[in-house]
Amino acid sequence: MTIELKIPEYSANWAEGEQQGKWGMAIDMDICTGCQACVAACAMENNIPFVGEADSGYGRSMHWIRTERFWEGEFPEIKMTPYQPVLCQQCGHAPCEPVCPAFATVHSQAEALNLQVYNRCVGTRYCANNCPYQVRSFNWRDYERPEPLPNQLNPDVTVRRRGVMEKCTFCIQRIHRAQDQAKAEGREVADGEFTTACAQACPADAIVFGRIDDPESAVSKLAGGARGFHMLEELGTLPAVTYLKGG
């Protein structure tokens, strides 16, 4: 038997002005209350381990989504900048993808997402260095889940071992589930039929997820509005996540 070796595509090939990506997210920073429901929802959906006090205080927490905030001014005129949930931006031209020597982080042509293939990852952590958004988290250890906590693990999502990089997947297990369902019923996945764990939990509905390639979808309308911007737009990474500035 001969094995044909191939080099997968790792980058989107959109031309300027073409519709970008398939799935997109819009996050309204004016509405986000920083409540962290998305953080917990993401952890519960995606089997993210907790790392304990020492490691989390040392920049090793595994959050796939985090809420950033800064300060402006001095007391009493001090203001907190709007809470900004930061997660993998699912870039169209992702800096993480070309640098992985093992093709563990590749571009999905079908879903227009940045995939992280845990099984291929050998842990060089180059992708994390090269991610301008610093949204990748590395399994520095085999994190302990004392019994019976593992009962809660989501069987749709791989449990990662030590030495493997991971990041937000746009809840790809939900995408696939919805696609399977739609395929079985002989139709396309409708906008709003399913959503990611963070968007589903968000009490303020500040996170909206859906088909960015459908101009009529909720996310496209929000993302296309005047308030929308992309994080670190100057890098040309073509993020699929659009933030909405304060109103």
């Binding site: 429901a37 917990a40 952890a43 809660q152 939990a201 968000c202 009490p203 509905d205």
Partner: peptide
């Protein structure tokens, strides 16, 4: 919708 505590209620259910 749920809040952060509601999301984590499973860590109460399966608390060691």
């Amino acid at each position: 919708k749920t809040c952060v505590r509601g999301q984590a209620t499973l860590h109460g259910l399966y608390n060691p």
